[in-house]
Design a protein around this nucleic acid. Structure first.
Lengths: 346, 346
DNA sequence: GTGAAAGCGCTAACAT
DNA sequence: ATGTTAGCGCTTTCAC
């Protein structure tokens, strides 16, 4: 391996510019109080030498790292079955980059990883954490919260986080579900069934609640339980058809299950949307566009969600913030609106 | 913001154990040469105080960071259209974690990002880089290589990297393509068409080459150009059907395009696989399983690819490596085998 | 406004 | 085998 040339230090820049290290530091960090002619000379020296501050040295004294951890708990590896995760990451990355923060990615698989993550967080390598926890019984969120790091959750967590509540960003799952069902009703459908997601995730619970908001006194047999997988969508659809052959619409808690339902309906000779209208959730491309017929569904702005998570966290970290805005009347949760995307299935 | 209690330092542990800082450092870093009774006392003090080494201080002197950057260039955002990226990341993460390295994720979008990434890499925050560059004309790879950091590429890069070549991990795109086409031939098909991927990516070029290896003297009109998107698959299929109505098989360079081709074939009343057999590439779930009929395709072990990339890089970084194995007869590229997955489309 | 100097927490020679 | 000491490169009082 080629031994890299030692990089220039503050000292070197100072020498070249004929000033003290302190002055260079001030210029580099944009603190005012250095007069223009001097500042310019320093900037030039920085350029000429290609000086880049040593982050380790800086952190050692400032105790800041300009880095945040993104923690993804994926016991079921479901996150990876869809492209959401990547989109969210992109949103986060953009926002972080814009504020010169680094993104440290922590993927957890099992229990061992939890202690590892806990230690890492406690180890003070990062200034804050962005956490995706999919399952309601996941101990990770509380564990992280306890590490005392500023944290923002992706998706509504199920615990209320002791004093002060937790901050999170989520899609309006409940409202989106209501829109979906109302759309079906607007189409003249009356026997609207629902295929739920895995009810150990708040998103599934919220979508189910949205369905019930609108279909308050529907036959409970119009609801079948799925787990977000295509296979579960097929299974649920069969179940539904069995116990309620007269149904004329289905709202599935995600597109994957809706696709499964579509297949089963076709198998049973039901035409979509003529006999049974179908609405999904997520607008997961390329699934939603590729089904037969293309899926009407509820879209969430997943990238924006990521961006907002980062923004919220950075605000917490902003040490320069005016006192009055720090810990002010800040909403704990930020809920992003969803949009109904009309295609041909409903 | 709760002011966190200052964490214990080496000094504190040393005091508590009644030894010098150096001794504690030795114990913490597992270097031998500390006798058992003493070492035990130190470990105990570490536990009691909950001591965690300050990484910034450590890096400052060791010049190591135990962190590697993962750089994903995604000008077309195509990476995010599929779940590959996440899988690969998981493979990388596992390997890195197992060796106590952190994963710093850098997503690049445009030119500005290039200089940012270049600066970051040059800034010496990480010990090495794992790079995904999708497009042949992408300047990023060379730029990174020039930063002088140990680097491993994901997917065969197109430039030969000056002295010594570059190390990378890739699937056996060419071999996989050959297998696909031979499978079609084995089914008795003779007029096997090919829908290429975006030919500014080496994976598409290699798959095309694989097709040509087997179909050396096929009618050139049996090849239509796509760009990996479903729409391009439809377009290419129409084109193919127009100029070569007698074709009896299609090998598409990925599953997304194969799915598009399937739709067009159905539109045209061709039965699959009876009239036209179709093979895809990637085994992208849930697409491949959900098409009508389910897709025969070439699977690559994408997670393993990530894992190997990380392993290769870590080996380069391993300062403790015996001299003889360092820069030994090491293959530049590591090619992973693919597997043909038989479903119903061929 | 600018410089001098102390010290962040750690590792690695070098002593002992 | 253990302790002492000198920095690593930077920010930040504190003088001037």
């Amino acid at each position: 391996m080629t031994e890299t040339v030692p990089r220039p230090t503050l000292e070197a820049v100072a020498a070249r510019a004929g000033v003290s290290r302190a002055t260079v530091s001030r210029v580099v960090n944009g603190s005012d109080g250095v007069r223009e002619p001097l500042a310019e000379r320093v900037r030039q020296a920085v350029d000429e030498l290609g000086y880049v501050p040593n982050q380790a040295a800086r952190s050692l004294v400032t105790k800041r790292h300009d880095a945040v951890a993104v923690i993804v708990a994926e016991p079921e590896t479901r996150v990876f079955a869809d492209p959401f995760f990547a989109r969210q990451l992109r949103g986060i990355s953009k926002e972080l980059t814009a504020h010169d923060n680094q993104l440290v990615l922590l993927l957890t698989e099992d229990r061992d990883d939890h202690v590892r993550v806990g230690r890492y967080l406690a180890g003070g390598h990062v200034d804050g954490a962005l956490v995706f926890s999919l399952h309601i019984d996941d101990p990770l969120p509380e564990l992280i919260q306890r590490a005392g790091l500023p944290t923002v959750f992706g998706g509504r967590p199920d615990f209320n986080g002791g004093r002060g509540g937790v901050s999170y960003v989520d899609s309006d799952n409940r409202g989106g579900a209501r829109d979906a069902v109302r759309h079906l009703l607007g189409l003249g459908r009356r026997r609207v069934a629902h295929i739920t997601g895995a009810l150990d995730q708040t998103s599934a619970v919220d979508r189910h609640d949205g369905y019930r908001d609108v279909m308050a006194d529907a036959d409970p047999r119009l609801v079948a339980r799925g787990d977000f997988t295509p296979a579960s969508g097929e299974r649920a659809m069969r179940e539904l058809l069995g116990r309620h052959p007269g149904l004329d619409a289905v709202f599935a808690a995600n597109d994957l299950m809706a696709a499964g339902a579509l297949r089963v309906l076709r198998e049973h000779g039901r035409r979509v949307p003529e006999d049974v209208a179908v609405v999904g959730f997520d607008d997961m491309l390329p699934i939603a566009e590729q089904t037969e017929p293309p899926l009407t569904t509820v879209r969430q702005d997943i990238e924006e969600m990521g961006r907002l998570m980062a923004r919220l966290l950075l605000r917490d970290l902003d040490h320069t913030g005016t006192p009055e805005e720090t810990s002010g009347a800040r909403p704990d949760g930020l809920i992003l609106p969803t949009t109904l995307i009309r295609r041909s299935s409903a």
